[in-house]
Simulated scan of single mutants.
Amino acid sequence: MGPGLLRRAPRGWLPARAISLKHSVRSHHYGSEGAPEIETTFALRVRWRIEVAGREPYEVEEQRDGPAWLAGGGVGGGNRWYKVRVRPQYGLMKDVPVPCFVNPADPSDLWIDWDAAYDAHEGAWEREARIRRAVSDASNPYDKVVGRLTNPFAGRVRAEDEAAEAEARIEREKPPPPAAPGPPGPFEVRLAELGRIKDTGRKTRATVMAHTATPRSMFGMPVVMLTFFVEGRTVEFEHCYGPRHLKHYKVGREVDVWIDPDNPDALCPGQ
């Protein structure tokens, strides 16, 4: 169950895991006719913590359709809407990592492996059932009877349940990761373009003919138009400079420049 009709992870995407920090699952709205008797999918709104090997974790908030088992509901809810799970299940759980794949071109674009997620949740559901039954057994005779009637297959609490609960608590207390990186801004795009010209361009010398202030600014610095005389022609170059940096481009001074191999009228000046 991934984007569109894909049943397999898109080729080239990065394997990762998603941990729900906060989520809600609700029925779809079907207008005046209401919801059907059997819903095959539910609407999921979730904030994921995304962990990709070798990278800093980050957060993604999204809305998507998910399998019916996400809603939980005690007995029932197999990994397909038409299947039944005899043991209790509690839907999507915050502490259970969900296998997924990340689009390398857009870190917020996820392909969720819901089948693997269901398999990962089965052990967590059974542990939760054992803990709930132990709590009801320790409460009072009425809660003990109700707990055993509603949770007959849970069994006794195991030693590993405490370790798993401690690990889940550590996971919950992790500091929130930064949001997914967004698209680069104009300044970053400009710096990347200048870096490309300097890395791939041809180095030569140019003379500063003029520098003119423009009415525009970027990040608090004025945008300046520099005019260079290079290889028999004038080339204009626009960038943002502070007073300290601009002093390197006094009129009449000769400086290094790199010429774009694809455009002779584009350059990257040095000092």
Rank of each mutant, 00 (worst) to 15 (best):
L226P: 04
R253C: 06
D199W: 00
P177F: 07
R64N: 10
N103P: 00
D137M: 10
I112E: 02
F219L: 12
A210S: 13
P261R: 05
D113F: 05
A166L: 15
P152E: 05
G195W: 03
D109C: 08
P104C: 07
L194N: 04
H239Y: 14
M93W: 02
G155Y: 10
G73V: 06
E62V: 11
R55K: 14
A71P: 00
M1N: 08
H248T: 03
G34S: 12
G147T: 05
H245W: 07
T200S: 09
R80M: 09
N140I: 00
E193H: 15
P88W: 00
V255K: 02
V251G: 08
L191A: 13
E39P: 03
R132K: 08
H211Q: 01
K94N: 12
D65G: 13
S108H: 01
I197Y: 07
A105N: 01
L246W: 05
R130H: 03
W81M: 01
K22Q: 15
I259Q: 01
I19Y: 12
Y58M: 06
Q89E: 03
A43E: 04
L194H: 06
V84G: 00
K247E: 15
G66D: 01
E193D: 14
R190E: 15
W114M: 04
L194I: 04
E33H: 14
A210D: 13
A164M: 10
P186S: 14
R17H: 15
R169K: 14
V224N: 03
R133Q: 14
W48E: 08
A16R: 02
E56H: 06
R132T: 01
G76P: 01
I131Q: 09
I112V: 15
K203C: 08
E173W: 12
L92Y: 05
G54K: 03
G78A: 12
P57R: 07
A120V: 05
D260Y: 12
A71D: 00
I197H: 03
D106A: 12
F228G: 10
I38F: 08
V255L: 13
V251H: 08
H239N: 15
H23R: 07
Y30T: 12
S32G: 13
S20K: 00
R169G: 03
S32V: 11
R11K: 11
V98L: 08
R7M: 00
T212E: 14
V208D: 02
G242E: 05
F219P: 00
K83W: 09
R47D: 11
K250L: 13
L14H: 13
D260M: 10
R47I: 10
G252E: 09
Y249T: 08
V224A: 08
R233W: 02
R8A: 15
L194K: 10
R169D: 11
L191F: 07
A163I: 03
V60H: 09
L194D: 11
C268K: 08
M1I: 06
E162M: 10
L14N: 12
S139E: 10
V96W: 03
G78D: 06
R148S: 11
N151P: 09
R47G: 14
R45Q: 05
R47K: 14
H211S: 08
V255S: 09
R244C: 06
V25G: 12
S108D: 04
F229I: 00
R8F: 11
E173K: 13
R133G: 07
A71K: 07
L6C: 09
E171N: 12
G34H: 03
R233N: 07
H211N: 13
